[in-house]
């Protein structure tokens, strides 16, 4: 308890000198938390959207001839060799015909005189419902096209492919902004703390003469780093929340919203971001104090 009050007292004394650089650092840390969590937010929302999308997504492989019942198991295995799938359905000519009839509804009389055999055999594949599968849907379709007897592969529209690319890109951006977060917080915090320490050089020297222990000198500096991390994460996430609200209010067009029903980061992710920020800022301060403790 006494230790804590000493630390706070020292902290207040120290921050009187270097508050400008501390505000700068706080700003930088918040900004990088904001950037990272912004992309992370988009990513998680995309992930959700894609799973919604995935439910409707299927690949249809048109075949030269029907796969005999005896070979179906083997055929399925060839498909699942590439990727896990939700479901595989073999569609007979009759069923395809029945579907077409259903789809045409009132106009279905155009089919009246036709024989179902003009329709091809096909296999419907529902890929498993995650981002990874979505991202490599093009490869999957190429693979399916190379299966024996496959004539053509059809799936969704072209934009699903683009969506897959977009998500891969987004993942890279999330990683990059995460790296940015790490670099900026560690460097900025260790830089600010070095400034504080340099402005306290005289004091540190005298503290040394008076027999101050490493713990005594380290304490307030570590707390400073910790608080920078805490407030940085807090204000970064708070700005993200306001940004999120703003986006939600401005882009709530019906079409857009159906696909991307935006939701904020779940609590667990918020907690993780806080933790990471604290960890990074504390290690930033540790880096700069280590040099001084050796003296």
């Amino acid at each position: 308890m006494r230790y804590i009050s000493f630390i706070l007292g020292q902290l207040a004394r120290n921050s009187r000198h270097g508050w400008a650089s501390q505000v700068m650092t706080l700003f930088t840390v918040s900004l990088s938390v904001l950037i990272f969590s912004f992309f992370f937010l988009i990513y998680t929302n995309m992930q959700k959207a894609s799973s919604r999308l995935g439910n409707e997504l299927r690949l249809i492989v048109y075949l030269e001839q029907e796969v005999p019942a005896a070979f179906r198991q083997e055929f399925k295995k060839k498909i699942t060799d590439f990727d896990r799938v939700e479901k595989i359905a073999f569609i007979s000519k009759e069923e395809a015909f029945a579907r077409l009839t259903r789809q045409l509804g009132q106009e279905s009389d155009v089919l009246e005189d036709l024989d179902p055999s003009f329709l091809p055999y096909s296999v419907e594949i529902f890929p498993s419902n995650n981002l990874k599968s979505l991202a490599r849907i093009k490869d999957f379709s190429d693979y399916l096209g190379s299966l024996p007897g496959a004539v053509k592969v059809q799936y969704g529209q072209e934009w699903i492919e683009r969506f897959g690319y977009f998500i891969s890109l987004l993942r890279i951006i999330v990683l990059l902004s995460g790296a940015l977060l790490i670099l900026t917080s560690v460097f900025m915090v260790s830089y600010t703390i070095r400034l504080t320490l340099e402005s306290r050089q005289e004091e540190l020297e005298i503290l040394r003469f008076l027999g101050a222990t490493d713990r005594y000198i380290r304490g307030p500096v570590m707390v400073e780093g910790f608080l920078l991390g805490l407030f940085g994460a807090f204000s970064g996430l708070l700005s993200l929340f306001f940004l999120f609200q703003w986006i939600k209010n401005h882009f709530s067009g019906p079409v857009f919203m159906n696909l991307f029903e935006l939701s904020f980061l779940p609590l667990a992710n918020i907690g993780t971001i806080f933790l990471i920020s604290l960890l990074l800022c504390s290690s930033g301060s540790l880096i700069s104090i280590r040099k001084y403790l050796k003296v």
Binding site: R2, Y3, F6, I206, L207, L210, G211, A212, T213, Y216
Partner: peptide, 8 residues
């Protein structure tokens, strides 16, 4: 006071 503070 500093001399005493370093001794908590």
């Amino acid at each position: 006071a500093l001399a005493m503070e370093v001794r908590y």
